[in-house]
Design a protein around this nucleic acid. Sequence first.
DNA 1: ATGTGTGTTGAC
DNA 2: TCAACACACATG
Length: 319
Amino acid sequence: MDSTSTIENSCSTSVAPPSTSIISPAEPLSRLGSGITEVESARKLPSLKFKGVVPQPNGRWGAQIYEKHKRVWLGTFNEEDEAGRAYDVAAQRFRGRDALTNFKPLSETEDNSELSFLRSRSKAEIVDMLRKHTYADELSRRRSLEYCDETEGNNNKKMGEEGERLFEKAVTPSDVGKLNRLVIPKQHAEKYLPLPTTTSKGILLNLEDKNGKVWRFRYSYWNSSQSYVLTKGWSRFVKEKGLRAGDVVSFRRSTGQDKRLYIDRNPPAQQPLVKTVRLFGVNICSSNTVPPVGRKRMGETDLFLPLECSKKQRVIDAL
DNA sequence: ATGTGTGTTGAC
DNA sequence: TCAACACACATG
């Protein structure tokens, strides 16, 4: 059984591309492990048909997909294979990675950034992009952002990208210190995690991490400091995740109906590309002083940098 | 005037 | 679920 089901035309009706036109650099309708021979497939040749593609009166091509007995229109395209690709995108968003596709499915691809991109957008958003022909742009925009916090293979695992991004916070020393609480920046708290006004003791929040583990925190508002905080349960999270000052914690919410909340520590930041800091033409700090593999930390871990460097770094920060 | 996308139907 | 077909209507 091949789970990466690419469309195979049923034997007798299978067709080859019109001899006059090469459809695309990638082989369309790749036939994996099928018994279809080239001779058979070349026998009839009306127009090459892609799944989900319908001809338009003006010679252009429409793409459509069906869901729940209804047709979802994916737009019109100049080329048949463009429409076929649009269908593929929709199919993989609507039906998952095992959906039948016209071209090589994403699940066979070595990089999973497109899959995670697909999951990060709603079906309606994907359809909208396809209809406006902006899908490729949006995808590459996402990829260029992703490149910035790409790490050593931490996020090509399971469902780390689940849900819509709410906000992130780089934790402060006190967030991971003895106060046993995380301060949620007010604007984020009020926008994304509104507390019922009636509650004085706060509420219990269940947040899931990317391994599916559920963390329960007390979430409340401290009048004394006028701030929103996660208290009970937070220190355990800090300990288990090995959270250190400067680490970034992200909050997400599931895109589905169930408003599940997610929390996790972001992968550690990449080493800065600039290895050497120069001030007034003088080298004053080089990041070669930190081991190439180790995680660079903020706050207390700065102490292991040469003292001279830390001092001058402050000068730079002040500029 | 043009072309998109829906209404509809019948096959698979 | 799917595509063929006809055409209402959106668009400019």
